[in-house]
Write a protein that binds this DNA or RNA. Structure first.
Lengths: 297, 297
DNA sequence: AGCACGTTATACCTTTGCGGTATGACGAGA
DNA sequence: TCTCGTCATACCGCAAAGGTATAACGTGCT
């Protein structure tokens, strides 16, 4: 089956006439007859009822018509998209973010950007860091709020540090350390840690190791999870402790408390984009993000 | 551009080798070279970087690859769907409903159906009556909860009456009639009515006219709206009054009161499906709906 | 450096199959 | 019954896809 078959079928099905459709397509009627017949043959399904006098859609034909039109529309959109991308045109910025980490910073940047570029819309996608990396690579995202910069550099993306957050320890309420107002990193040494999986949050593990190393602690990671909320739930269930940036405090859980750690650890958060061909709006947006990030400290 | 081009491109892009891809596709390498070149030509975009030794994707190529795979997947799904439909196989029932009208009846039917047909899943689609008619016609829905039976019969669908609801008048709070516990239809004669548009709720207008006729009233329809909620908001804004089935009472609004009308009017609600080729599960589900509808009175 | 082996590109031939023309078969309406 | 319009069939020409042979070029091994 080729797109040509679909184009022909749509024409015939909408005109309900081979002759009519042939005129519209600037082709000859017998050709249409043959192509549609071969399409039906390949599908093993009759799409049209033909009498000598008129053509009507079968039940299957009607649903296939709808699907075909959709498919052709997507095909056209795909072609247009790759051409636009080639021309470097940007009429929308696709931006990925981790809702639980950037809920505070993101909204402030949007209004500011809209003022400068009112004609360019921003599409937001809530996805994990790992998904964002893949989407950036495939061109489905123009910019990602992806946290730690180590995995970014590793993949050859451009990036900029936009903010740094205090790091907190998430502890089960019944943990002895929860009684204190601050937690010494060293004191966490005997505990088990909950980590984020490499698939969804690349670099978390190595960041955790490095952070603990500075306090001379080697973290024992009990379990990896995919979502921030799952992490907090795991902590709440008493499975272990976790080190998280302060935004995660928003994810309240009855059995989890958050305590600042000593020595204080700050986590840097970055935005990342593809190096090649950075568009002016993207560049401007990054500036805005950086500026807003600074003004929040 | 044909699907063939996309199939070839995907193979080459994933193998990152023309020779390799040619083997997988059981074709000759020069043919691939030519086809891909003609694709790039038509798009006006270079998709691959070729050196004598290796092939790599360009930036545009990467995003086009993702789009192509998606497109091919949709094409395959389209073909499979029409074949399944031809064989009369049903592995899922697609059911449309108007959330504001059938929130009470629908959930009860689902559990019962699941018991009888555990292997058949039900996909629910919240859509207006008008959209449901179109979807039924195109085969995107198997069954629709579409209310009034007059527009159904008009379109040649099969249908069954499943319930009848009392009709209420929706009035602005400051309307003098709102003070009474019941409203005479005749008393509504001087007021303006809010109606549902033909596009989203076919038949509402003629139902309204017929209903009022019986009380010797000719409704003056001020405005048509698309959604139940919009209707209530319009009433709340003092634009007019409306006749609605009792479920709509759930859509509370601070400035709107609902009063039963005299003489009492009942509205019949129907499900509709396409006559041809009714599947056993569909038939069974309709029975269930009818049964549940009866037991609710 | 030179050779073997791999890659993609080019040239040329074969063959498929798409489109075009002519015409047949058939039904509707005058 | 005749005309007109419709879709189907038969046949032809040709564009274009596929196949074979080989060139052009890089890489890596000796």
């Amino acid at each position: 089956m080729e797109l040509r078959h679909l184009r022909y079928f749509v024409s015939v099905a909408e005109a309900l006439s081979f002759t009519q459709a042939a005129k519209e397509l600037h082709t000859a009627q017998p050709s249409l007859t043959r192509q549609i017949k071969s399409l039906e043959n390949e599908l093993g399904v009759q799409l049209l009822h033909r009498t000598k006098q008129q053509v009507t859609l079968t039940d299957e034909g009607r649903s296939f018509l709808a699907d075909s039109k959709r498919l052709l529309a997507i095909a056209a959109e795909t072609v247009e998209a790759v051409r636009r991308r080639h021309r470097g045109e940007v009429r929308a910025l696709n931006i990925g973010y981790v809702s639980n980490l950037f809920y505070d910073l993101l909204p402030r940047t949007l209004a500011s950007f809209r003022q400068s570029f009112p004609s360019i819309s921003i599409n937001l996608f809530d996805m994990s860091c790992g998904d964002q990396f893949r989407a950036l690579d495939e061109g489905r995202l123009d910019l990602g709020f992806v946290g730690l910069h180590e995995p970014i550099a590793l993949r050859g993306f451009e990036f900029r540090t936009i903010a740094s957050y205090k790091t907190f320890a998430a502890l089960p309420k019944n943990n002895p350390l929860a009684a204190k107002t601050r937690v010494e990193l060293k004191a966490l040494a005997p505990m088990f840690f909950i980590g984020m999986s490499e698939g969804s949050y690349p670099g978390y593990r190595s960041w955790l190791t490095r952070t603990c190393d500075r306090a001379g602690v080697t973290p024992k990671v009990l379990q990896d999870v995919d979502l921030e909320r799952t992490m907090i739930q795991a902590v709440g269930a008493g499975l272990g402790v976790a080190l998280v940036p302060e935004q995660v405090k928003k994810l309240k859980h009855e059995n989890v408390v958050f305590r600042p750690v000593t020595p204080a650890v700050t986590t840097e958060a970055c935005v990342a984009w593809k190096g090649e061909n950075p568009s002016a709006p993207l560049q401007a947006y990054v500036e805005i993000v950086e500026h807003v990030g600074r003004s929040m400290r």
